[in-house]
Design a protein around this nucleic acid. Sequence first.
RNA 1: GCCGCCUUAGCUCAGUCGGUAGAGCGUCUCACUCGUAAUGAGAAGGUCAUCAGUUCGAUUCUGAUAGGCGGCUCCA
Length: 664
Amino acid sequence: MSQITLTVDQVERAVEAGTTGTDLFGDRRDVVVVRVDGELRDLAAPLPDGAAVESVTIDSPDGLAVLRHSAAHVLAQAVQEVNPSARLGIGPPITDGFYYDFDVETPFTPEDLKALEKVMQRIVKEGQSFRRWDVTEEEARTVLAAEPYKLELIGLKGTADTEGASVEVGLGGLSIYQNVRRDGTVVWQDLCRGPHLPTTRLIANGFQLTRSAAAYWRGSEKNPQLQRVYGTAWPTKDELRAHLERLAEAERRDHRRLGAELDLFSFPDEIGSGLAVFHPKGGIIRREMEEYSRQRHIDAGYDFVNTPHITKSRLYELSGHLDWYADGMYPPMHLDAEVDDDGTVRRQGQDYYLKPMNCPMHILIYRSRGRSYRELPLRLFEFGTVYRYEKSGVVHGLTRARGFTQDDAHIFASREQMKSEIAAALEFVLALLKDYGLDDFYLELSTKNPEKFVGSDELWEEATETLRQVAVESGLALVDDPGGAAFYGPKISVQAKDAIGRTWQMSTVQLDLNLPELFDLEYQAADGTRKRPVMIHRALFGSIERFFAVLLEHYAGAFPAWLAPVQVLAVPVAEPFNAYVEDVVAQLRAQGVRAESDLSDDRFGKKIRTASTQKIPFVLIAGGEDAEAGAVSFRYRDGRQENGVPVAEAVERILAAIRDRVQV
RNA sequence: GCCGCCUUAGCUCAGUCGGUAGAGCGUCUCACUCGUAAUGAGAAGGUCAUCAGUUCGAUUCUGAUAGGCGGCUCCA
């Protein structure tokens, strides 16, 4: 027996040739695969001489992916057991779970999913093992002759176009994974690069099928749709339960639900899909958001402009929007045409479009007269409402609407000012986001797509480097998004994490090398020559409606006092104290606080409950003890209370919380 | 836009195997009500999304339309 040398979890060891991961880690149930010289491998694979071997546990990111991928295989086996005519698409692990695509005659129903879960449970309990079989292309084609989609993937192997199929075919050889019963019979098999769990038993009870939906084959809407089944899988039941609880929490925070519960906004059918109306309470939140933003923009040297909601087509022909984005725009209104009775056109009409973007309008303001270098940088800001004809299937509450208001600014600057303006814009944006209560960020830098760009390499290089420098100086994590830029310039976007860890793309700062060119923008430089300005697009909220939704979900409706529609609710312990309570409210109102009193004939406990469900930041309670002492009692949203606070101090405390924009 | 599901009172939902409907919350009225998440009684409130079709009869079955939900594709 020859010996080989392995480095096992950083320790060098001599072992017999043919040693496998199972031999090394068989006594550790949490080790599900091994990483051999950086590549994940099955535990059953013999380890090569000199290899560096690391254990990969089921709760590590790689281990979880393997668990979920194996769960996807079990799902596919279950589907084909129930319905042998189902053809297989792909089945990769995804965040928190997995999916598998099937070509089936009829889509899955919720009952189907329940039944499939039962079959999966049985397969899991059988303790089938995953056996790798390295095959030639010929063998693979023979084994998978009945699986047209798999054959297509085999044909794609090694080409650049394996997107979405990387779990089935890698760049190396082909392999098939067989599910083997304990008695050695092969129950099911699938084209797959692996690796997999040693046994289905590890899928234990920590999995669940969650939903089914259609998905285009290989992600293209030109391809047929397959039926996709989604599931989630975890190492333990407890983790599964925690995951389901996170989903439930996200649902409780859903801005569409909170919007109705707290009477903030609605989407009347009569107006149309994706078009919101803000109710008085939503209006207050929105006004506070806007007013604070407006003040900060004034302080930062922005000029305020206003532009119309519709325009003749000429503007968007010039800007190129009609070339690039006509599909996403509302169709035009054709106006002013005059036709004689005999059908001859007496006067040519005009097409008017609802505006999908503010920038061309702002450009026209810049271009309304000659500009001097002395005016630069010129920062034009507008809460500009735009309309985009989003496809019917994508409209989603306030986060994807058809009409929304951008806090949009365009900075016209000289090449020399470009760097400092981009830096200032990013700093401005980050500081402001923090004031709204988001403080966990990372940045994403979208760089040039070599296939699709305008402008000189030099300018791109300079702009990209500037964005990068500013990003690095901010001290935030920076993620590269190579090729992710729009054709007209690189972009930095701020990704914010909310209270339950979800990431939202927020602000963007984007350099535009294209529009100044198309509109032939100029300014007169100090030396008398005419020069072209650069243009920086930046939005903080992106869309006020969307930002509203993000804040609503982030705070779960419990806004900090400065944003809360009702900041204080005063509740008398009983009717005799109505007047006392009203007096306190009057004092607060005199200071500009949005204070109300609950003098309804509900009982005291009910009033507390009502205030609670309305998520009012300060509930002030007054009864005999308080009235005698000239005091009130605070009740906060978490149930905390503080009794006998002198009225003057209470007022001051509330004013301070509002002024300082703190959460209470 | 594509696939699937859904649409019954202001909200959340029962229900009718085809004979025009119910609950809880909310609203209104009355009574009750002195310490931190639901006092009691009563009342009002519905062309069962819309439009066609089948039927003696449609909220229920069929189809179309609109809106919603979950995905896919898209997101300047």
